[in-house]
Amino acid sequence: MQRNRFKRRRGYVYRLAVAQVSVSFACLLAGFVAGGTGGALDALKGALVAIVPQGLFVLRAGILNPRLGALQGARRLLRAEMGKFGLTVALFTLLFVVVPPSNPAFFFSAYVAVVLTHWLGPWLLRRHRSTYRGN
């Protein structure tokens, strides 16, 4: 029973990653069409600022580790969320100081689109479920 739950969780995490990369690619194309190479680079920067902390969160939280206890998992989840927030702030700061985007609209649009993909993940990645109950 528990093994199936973690297989489903792993599948959900992988599907969410694919959805975020797909949204990033769509933002990159939209930025290229609307703003040329500069718009595409700004959209790529925004997507990376959203995806990199999310990847760190998944790795540090132990979401894919079936051997974590409840208390240990809660502690790791909290630490991973703090690390994700800190990395996001650091990436925003680093990006705007070292390589400021030429058009912040593309940057923030891509960032928000990738983050919203994460928030709407359960709705976007819902599997087709059977309604057969074996009666």
Rank of each mutant, 00 (worst) to 15 (best):
Y132N: 10
V89R: 07
L29I: 13
V49E: 11
L116D: 04
M82D: 00
V52Y: 03
R79P: 01
G36P: 02
R75S: 12
V97F: 08
G31V: 01
G73D: 02
Y14D: 05
Q54V: 09
F6K: 09
L78T: 13
L48I: 07
R15M: 08
R5V: 13
G121M: 06
R5G: 04
N4M: 07
A61T: 07
R75Y: 02
L94D: 08
V99K: 06
S109G: 09
F25W: 13
M1G: 01
S130N: 08
M82I: 11
V49D: 11
I51A: 14
G35S: 07
A17G: 09
G46A: 09
S130V: 04
I63R: 11
A50T: 12
F6A: 06
P53M: 03
Q2N: 10
V52M: 09
A40T: 03
V33C: 01
A34N: 03
G134M: 05
A43L: 11
R9S: 01
N65W: 01
C27Q: 07
L48Y: 10
L95V: 15
P53G: 03
R10F: 05
M82C: 08
W119L: 15
F108M: 14
D42V: 09
R129M: 03
V99L: 09
V97G: 06
A74K: 14
L68W: 01
P122L: 03
R127P: 02
A70W: 00
P100Q: 11
L64A: 13
R126H: 04
Y111F: 15
A110V: 04
R67C: 11
V13T: 10
P104M: 02
F107I: 07
L87P: 09
L125E: 13
V18L: 15
L64C: 13
L120Y: 05
F85S: 12
N4R: 13
V97P: 02
V98A: 14
V33K: 06
L95E: 13
Q72C: 03
L48F: 04
T37N: 07
N4W: 06
V21Q: 11
G38Q: 14
G83N: 09
R75W: 06
V114D: 03
I63Y: 08
P101S: 06
A17Y: 02
V58Q: 06
